[in-house]
Amino acid sequence: MTRRQAELLLLCGFLILAVLLYRSTAAYPPTVQNSTARYVRFLGLALGFFSLLELGLWFRKGAAVKAEKLAVAAVPGRFWGLFILLVVYSASLTRAGFYLASAVFLPLAMLLLGARKPLTIVLTTGGVLLFIYLVFARLLAVPLPAGTLF
């Protein structure tokens, strides 16, 4: 996808959002039709107006701009790999508990990103977890995600 195509897609999305937002205010209770519903309607109108304006600008620029590819990630493997790891890590927090999930996540992510020395990986992982245990759990008594597995 080129950058221009992505822009078009986003703008159309915003336009649809604006219309949906505007229409949704009809369902607000009658008591707020003149207060918050009006505010939300204004947001919908303004978003729609500016999205249309930007669409106009988009067409006016036309093909004058050279097609530039939209590169979300410089190194897609690492980028998406890390993102998927993050999602899995977050989802596993309530199952495995914070410490276990983190003890798996950190080394995996480091390996993915090209760390190869086992000593550094283990020391960093251990150090970070120890720090969190001391500062978050011991000192400040912040509740960390607990697991249901045990």
């Binding site: 993050l86 950190l106 480091m110 990103l113 970070v128």
Partner: peptide, 10 residues
């Protein structure tokens, strides 16, 4: 970055 990114993400 190989060490920094995972830690900051955590």
């Amino acid at each position: 970055t190989a060490l920094l990114i995972p830690v900051v993400c955590l």
